[in-house]
């Protein structure tokens, strides 16, 4: 199972095991990682699942699609080039070791 590390705004790291096919958002919720709200449950409707993909991983996760970028414009925290909606990143074996940083606020 791929491992994913979430880094809180204060710098705390939590590493959890993800299931192939789940989104990074689902992985966070299923493992009790704080800092992702995901109000719309992954429908790309809320921008409360914002995360920053670690620079080293950006090539593998890819950047946000146009529609995702439109939603991110309304995220509560600063949007950067490495911003993604975590519900739109699907976990695969390829992403084993992925590190994402969580923003200060989601709402």
């Amino acid at each position: 199972m791929p491992k994913i590390t979430f880094v809180s705004p204060e710098g705390g790291r939590t590493t959890v095991e993800a299931s192939d096919g789940d989104s990074v958002m689902q992985t966070a919720l299923a493992n009790g990682v704080e800092g992702i709200v995901a109000e719309c449950g992954g429908a790309m409707m809320c921008a409360t699942c914002h995360c920053y993909v670690d620079e080293d991983w950006l090539a593998r996760t890819g950047t946000a699609s146009d529609e995702e970028r439109s939603m991110l414009d309304f995220a509560a925290s600063e949007v950067r080039p490495e911003s993604r909606l975590s519900c739109q990143i699907t976990v695969t074996g390829d992403l084993d070791g992925l590190t994402v940083h969580l923003p200060d606020a989601q709402i």
Partner: peptide
């Protein structure tokens, strides 16, 4: 169904 849970 497991994916539907809000929280564990």
């Amino acid at each position: 169904a497991a994916r539907l849970h809000f929280r564990p």
